[in-house]
Amino acid sequence: MDLFDDLPEPTQTTGPVPVAVIDQPQSTKSGEEDVKSVRRKREHSDGHTDQNEEQPEEIKKVCKEGLPTLKGYVAARRGEREEMQDAHVLLPDMSSCLSTLPSQVSRVSYFAVFDGHGGARASQFAAEHLHHNLAKKFPSGDSENLDKMVKKCLLDTFRQTDEDFLKKASSQKPAWKDGSTATCVLVVDDVVYVANLGDSRAVLCRMEAAAEGESRSVTLALTKEHNPTIYEERMRIQRAGGTVRDGRVLGVLEVSRSIGDGQYKRCGVISTPDLRRCQLTANDRFLILACDGLFKVFSADEVVKFVLNILQERSVEQKPGFAEEELCFEAACHQLASEAVRRGCADNVTVILVSVCF
Rank of each mutant, 00 (worst) to 15 (best):
R245K: 14
R277P: 01
R201G: 02
N283Q: 05
F138A: 04
V105Y: 01
R343M: 09
A169I: 02
D274Y: 00
A202G: 05
D50G: 10
R81F: 00
G179W: 00
A290C: 09
S109R: 12
S123V: 09
D301V: 09
D347Y: 07
G79I: 01
L220H: 11
C97K: 06
R206A: 02
V349I: 05
G213A: 08
L3V: 06
M1C: 08
L90G: 03
G66Y: 04
D115W: 05
L7G: 08
E325D: 13
Y193E: 01
L204Q: 01
E324Q: 13
Q335M: 04
Q55A: 13
D115M: 01
D142V: 13
E208V: 14
A135C: 08
G241E: 02
P174F: 07
P8V: 02
A337D: 06
S103M: 10
F358W: 15
E53I: 14
G260I: 07
E32L: 13
F286A: 10
F298N: 03
V89I: 10
L155C: 10
P56V: 07
L146C: 05
V21K: 12
V341A: 05
V303K: 04
S103Y: 12
V185R: 07
E339I: 03
H48F: 15
F4I: 05
T49R: 12
S103I: 14
G72H: 04
A211Q: 15
Q172P: 03
P320V: 14
E144H: 00
G179E: 11
V35E: 13
C267S: 12
A76I: 11
V351K: 01
K71I: 09
V62G: 00
A337I: 03
Q26I: 09
R121F: 08
C357P: 04
D274Q: 04
E326K: 06
D190S: 15
R236C: 05
L186N: 07
S30P: 03
S99K: 13
Y264P: 09
L250T: 13
L311H: 12
K167C: 12
R314H: 03
S180P: 11
T69L: 13
G119F: 01
N196F: 04
V349L: 06
V113F: 02
T28A: 14
S45I: 07
Q160E: 15
G198C: 03
P8W: 00
T13H: 02
L134A: 02
L98G: 03
L327M: 12
E80M: 02
V62K: 11
N133R: 08
P102M: 08
H117E: 01
E326G: 09
A20Q: 14
C184F: 12
